[in-house]
Design a protein around this nucleic acid. Structure first.
Length: 272
DNA sequence: ATGACTAGGTCACCTAGA
């Protein structure tokens, strides 16, 4: 099974890219972020032609997440409020559409678009930290569900120094500050692992390149898109990659897709 | 230095992204 994530920066501007990449990469499940479209206008048709159904949580202009799958999508949950029904903060954070999950082939896939935070001095940064705090509470409920679990998306955080091209300049700033890194580490806990780092310990692998300043041509990027998996899925992990070539296409998203390949579950043999 | 690109919408400048 191939599980993937991609911040497409508007699904309507990326239809041809998405169509081509689905055909080429053949993900079974794909979490999209920044769809930037309200649900009534979501372009289901071209995805259905490609063999995918979509569970969506969108809004006009900003944010928006979707889960595409060519396997059945079951028990879709939208927003933090789905697992935190009496949490007032979860309800308020639900105004921005950034959280969707579904069960696919026995795996609970949680797709997230973490707030960017803009600037350490801004209210948006406070929002980002409050959001991560709520995610922590949400995950502790999720951990009680007893489902094989995978959390993916655009985290807008480079967790380690090796996850950004310019640590000297950018460490401590937005997407690389200690409070947000600690907040994300708290969410990850001791049970989840960054799937990419199970296979690749080296520096120099990015998932986002700024449109400005020739960042792509200079390969000055950040690895801010991640796939985290629980202990059960770590045992099934085969490989994980960043589909960097997508960023070099004409009119690309500023993010590249990322993916994780899992062994399919083998039916237990019984000799008696 | 706080810029550069890209997308959506109120539409030719603004907000937001990261």
């Amino acid at each position: 099974m191939r599980i993937a994530s991609w911040n497409v920066n508007s699904i309507r501007s990326r239809e041809t890219h998405l169509q081509r990449w689905l055909q080429m990469a053949q993900p079974d499940v794909l979490g999209l972020q920044e769809t930037k479209v309200e649900d009534a206008m979501f372009p289901h048709e071209f995805l259905e032609k490609a063999g995918y159904t979509a569970a969506i949580s969108g809004q006009k202009s900003y944010n928006g997440v979707a889960l595409l799958s060519r396997l059945p999508l079951e028990d879709v949950r939208i927003g933090f409020e789905a697992l935190l029904p009496s949490d007032q903060t979860a309800k308020e954070l639900g105004e921005q559409k950034r959280v969707i999950s579904a069960s696919v082939a026995g795996v609970r896939v949680l797709n997230l678009y973490v707030p960017n935070g803009s600037d350490l001095k801004s209210d948006k940064y406070k929002y980002k930290l409050a959001w991560l705090n709520c995610l922590n509470r949400y995950l502790n409920v999720q951990r009680q569900q007893g489902e094989a679990f995978c959390m993916l998306g655009d985290f807008n955080i480079a967790l380690e120094d090796i996850d950004l091209a310019n640590p000297g300049r950018n460490n401590g700033g937005i997407m690389a500050s200690l409070p947000e890194r600690e907040a994300l580490r708290g969410c990850i806990g001791n049970d989840l692992q960054d799937a990419f780092r199970l296979f690749e310990p080296e520096v120099g692998h990015w998932s986002w390149w700024d449109y400005r300043s020739g960042a792509w041509d200079r390969d000055q990027g950040w690895r801010i898109d991640h796939i985290y998996i629980d202990e059960e899925l770590q045992q099934r992990a085969l490989s994980s990659m960043i589909h960097k070539a997508e960023r070099g296409e004409l009119k690309p998203s500023d993010h590249a897709p990322i993916s994780l390949d899992l062994f399919d579950e083998v039916a237990e043999e019984n000799d008696d």
